[in-house]
Nucleic acid binder design. Structure first.
Lengths: 112, 112
DNA sequence: TAATTACATTGCAATATTACGATTAATAAA
DNA sequence: TTTATTAATCGTAATATTGCAATGTAATTA
């Protein structure tokens, strides 16, 4: 059906899954890394940088923006995108929590 | 097209994206968390636990297994699944590296 | 051997994602 | 005002994902 049964899961599980989707495409990872590198928050240079079509990059940017991971401010004709600082604290906290939970289980040595 | 242009991106970006897909569904997060909790590495109790059909759970388990995140060993009629300890070190290292990279950028204060 | 149990696989339907050309909207420059 | 320039949006095609019923497979039990 292609539709996720979100009602079966906890808010946190759904939130993690939603955020993970942002990272589930190499272009979006590349975009985030590029924004981290060029702190000046460059925009459609990404099209040249990544080699995808303008419409495709725009689509990826929208997804990242909708999740609150980046924000964009209009700068004349172009748009300045940059990482949304506040959000990243929650994101890394959520994922670190998950990884801690999972790796702790392993280190306790009861795994098969 | 629904097909990702992996050749445009680095090995690490593609690896991160691939792994993120594992977390991009709440059922798979729930499965991993359940395996972490019941270290005894329980199997298709998941069907009752999660409320999805047997075939659906089996499919999610296969995806996690193909990524090397879990492993399963036959135990008579049933199968014991558990977290694959070695893999988790690499996974958390990769994601921590990404988050460090992104949050460091923010804390340096040049964001818009 | 026959029936049962526990999963995996197959086949299918519904929806989501990825990608891009074409179009549109808005600002800047001529 | 006309003409770029920049990027969002629309429409469409191809592929991927999610979910389940039905079926297949292998080990266990009667």
């Amino acid at each position: 059906m292609g539709i996720t049964k979100t009602d079966l899961f906890s808010t946190e599980q759904n939130e993690l899954a939603q955020l993970a989707k942002a990272f589930a495409h190499p272009a979006r990872i590349a975009i985030l890394q590029y924004l981290a590198k060029t702190k000046s928050c460059i925009n459609g240079t990404l099209v040249q940088e990544l080699g995808l079509a303008q419409a495709t990059i725009s689509q990826h940017l929208r997804e990242l923006k909708e999740l609150g991971l980046i924000k964009g401010s209009i700068e004349g004709v172009s748009v300045n995108y940059c990482l949304n600082e506040e959000k990243w604290e929650r994101v890394s906290a959520l994922f670190n929590g998950l990884f801690d939970q999972l790796t702790q289980s392993c280190s306790s040595g009861d795994c098969c």
